[in-house]
Write a protein that binds this DNA or RNA. Structure first.
Lengths: 259, 259
DNA sequence: TTATCATTGTGTAAATATTACAGAATGATA
DNA sequence: TATCATTCTGTAATATTTACACAATGATAA
């Protein structure tokens, strides 16, 4: 009782009235900062495993709206670009020895049994999104004890099939980066070549020749030089670039290979 | 009453006990035959609109099993390779002026109202599949009056958001064909070069130079010459080829561009 | 002030891949 | 045996991708 607020109590008791049954959304929120790719995870009260920020779908909202609502709750950001990548559905995917009706009973003070709607077979529609690490203030809530970034190479133990979701999201992101200007969602409006270069290397997890990389992005027209320079603390002032909307749309249509 | 069998009556009355609520699967079944790409659609009793073969998910089966069960019912084939491509979810996506509780009441003889579980908000997880047109015997069933192939360029009026689903499936297929040996699922084990050539031209909806096309598939190792010849009725006996499993897997991993 | 050093920025040649293009060989049929 | 639809193949021009290294900048330290 002490851990859980009214909203959460209400969700447990009346959730099935306001939310769809047997379907939920989960978000793989990638954060990028200083050449590292991280994932935002939360840890429920009372267990040592972590999970993706996810939630139920209101009867009045679309899949995307539901996913965005959940992501906004955890990140404070409301302009995230969410990309659906797969739905997961196997009968026992949300059965976990650590996340039990007993635990929920203890935490909520309510009598939660194994046939409570929350422990039913849920199909999860999954989205991923990218954001600048430093913009986010991870918010726990309800019965979530912690919410924090984890480097993709050092994921903790996770509930359900959430680790597979992260792996699949990363695969999808790496496939998409070849066809869409993914950095558009992630970099500030004006950015330098070393910045976008480091971003691509981090996402793909491999090094890319800096001369060839820049050449390709410029000859395809995806990025354009602004003629301005950034004054950064150390060393030289690099030139600033921006994404070109028109070339971006064109690349999307033509299924161009961008890297 | 007269149109509907016991299974269907039972589905209407007890379906919510055996199936997940608020989630369903829909299949875009592409059939290929003689340089034409078609989609398998069915038409319910009493309305003029067509729809995709779809269905509900049993509490004991996975998403894929559900989709395969539905596809098998309509095609008689049980070896289909189903590819999930997107889930659709907006609150009113299955509201259609032509497909009403009144119609279902009339057809079933039961009292079906707007709050019947079947008319609830359903999130649909969509799959596409490819099959050799001539292997399929389209089966109607339950309250489906017709089940037949429609050329992708001449789709009839369709219920709900099913036309969008077909369009999205086709986009996904055309994207996938650049990275996966899609024909693997569609062509017989041994096939000729003109056969695979025509298949790719049909799926992509554009012509491909026959010399360059063959060269690419052979230099990438995706297809291999068998050293056998096919005896076909007219004219020459073309050489037979087969897909190479190893090169196929490699292409998948490397995200190679195959066409 | 000058030397050092991390960072930024740039060009070319070789290799590879893609494209464009046409006609000869086969074997069934008339 | 002439005709015809179909199968099959090579090369040159062009475009793209890859590999590769050093000079310029300007902050910092000596």
């Amino acid at each position: 009782m002490e851990y859980i607020d009214d909203g959460e109590i209400n969700l447990l008791i009346n959730g099935h009235l306001h939310f769809l049954k047997n379907v939920s959304v989960d978000n793989v929120i990638f954060g990028y900062h200083e050449k590292e790719l991280k994932v935002l995870l939360q840890r429920p009260q009372g267990i040592v495993k972590w999970q993706l920020p996810g939630g139920y779908i209101k009867r009045t909202e679309t899949l995307n709206e539901a996913a965005l609502r959940v992501a906004t709750e955890r990140t404070g950001l409301d302009k995230l670009f969410l990309q659906q990548f797969r739905s997961f559905g196997t009968p026992h995917r949300t059965f976990d020895a650590d996340f039990t009706p007993e635990l929920m009973t203890k935490l909520s003070g309510l009598q939660i049994s194994a046939d409570h709607w929350m422990f039913d077979y849920f199909v999860s529609v999954c989205f991923y999104t990218l954001t600048e690490f430093s913009l986010v203030i991870p918010n726990g809530s309800f019965y979530m004890e912690e919410c924090q970034w984890w480097p993709i190479g050092e994921l903790p133990q996770m509930t359900f099939d959430h680790r597979e979701m992260v792996e699949e999201a990363l695969k999808a992101l790496r496939l998409h980066i070849y066809h869409y200007p993914v950095g558009y969602e992630l970099l500030p409006e004006k950015f330098t070549r070393p910045e976008i270069h480091a971003l691509y290397e981090t996402i793909l997890g491999k090094s890319l020749d800096s001369r060839n990389f820049g050449k390709k992005l410029i000859t395809t027209g995806i990025i354009k030089e602004l003629g301005e320079q950034k004054s950064i603390g150390a060393h030289r002032s690099p030139k600033l670039y921006k994404f070109d909307k028109e070339a971006y749309d064109n690349a999307l249509k033509e299924m161009m290979v961008l890297v």
